[in-house]
């Protein structure tokens, strides 16, 4: 006959097997166990050349810039490198959280720079350049010495010096479908609390920080946006139910 009605989700004949070269071209991820990392090497000095030429304009000469993105370097100590916990995350001693304060795994740095940096020319670096500039970032953070050369074989050793390597927990219910919530609110319906005070609101001086809110609401409907710019507000009649009843 002309036609077969088949079992659902069979997809017969669709797609084709990927070639090794295709997989190589796209399978670029590097996992925490370094699966996926290509062979290569790069020194702190080589990394500085890459950094100054291709990274510093956005991230600052020492990875400290806040201009284009939050700082990459800063806020970690030798004690953190020892403990594997960035203490400032607990104490709040540093106002801003830098990349090195958070990143637990060196693979993450390598993988991300390799796939996404420089921001405006991602995937333009060679593997050796990625090794080198990763070494340079680690050096800026005091994790590896000035004469260090990073390669596929010593990554694991460097991992053991990442300042926040023990800073992550998966003890929470927010990943797996079967995970249990940590926060428990009860559904009280009446006389739930005695008194309520406003504990936070937008200070007057910031009232127009988001522009004129009147222009961010519809010109009809149950409400209008508040006039928050200095331009003259239209006269509002809020003291009666409707002009029509006047």
């Amino acid at each position: 006959g002309c036609c077969t009605i088949v079992q659902a989700w069979a997809f017969e004949g669709l797609g084709r097997v990927a070639t090794p070269a295709e997989i190589k071209a796209w399978d670029i991820d590097v996992r925490p166990d370094f699966k996926g990392i290509p062979k290569g090497r790069g020194s702190v000095q080589q990394g500085q050349l890459v950094w100054d030429a291709q990274c510093a304009s956005c991230h600052g000469a020492f990875g400290e810039s806040n201009e284009v993105f939050t700082p990459i370097v800063g806020g970690t100590t030798d004690a953190d490198i020892q403990s594997g916990h960035v203490a400032a995350l607990r104490t709040g001693a540093v106002p801003q959280r830098t990349t090195l304060m958070k990143v637990p795994t060196v693979s993450t740095l390598w993988d991300y720079v390799n796939r996404a940096m420089p921001w405006n020319a991602p995937k333009s670096l060679s593997a050796n350049e990625v090794y080198a500039v990763t070494a340079y970032i680690l050096n800026l953070g005091g994790i590896v010495p000035d004469d260090f050369e990073l390669n596929q074989d010593n990554m694991a050793a460097v991992q053991n010096k990442m300042p926040n390597r023990h800073g992550m927990t998966q003890q929470h219910g927010l990943w797996q479908v079967s995970g249990k919530p940590d926060v428990k609110e009860r559904r009280c319906m009446s006389n739930c609390v005695r008194s309520v005070v406003v504990s936070s609101s937008i200070p007057d001086y910031a009232a127009d920080a988001h522009g004129n809110l009147m222009d961010q609401n519809r010109v009809i409907g149950p409400v209008r946006g508040q006039q928050t710019s200095t331009a003259l507000a239209p006269k509002l009649a809020v003291s009666h139910v409707s002009a029509g009843e006047a």
Binding site: R16, V17, A18, T19, A21, E22, W26, A121, P122, K123
Partner: peptide, 19 residues
């Protein structure tokens, strides 16, 4: 998948290499 593979896989597109 002629030869090495599909050129649009082997040669990364502009959007994979730009902003």
């Amino acid at each position: 998948a002629v030869g090495e593979g599909d050129p649009v896989i082997l040669q990364l597109p502009e959007h994979s290499k730009g902003l």
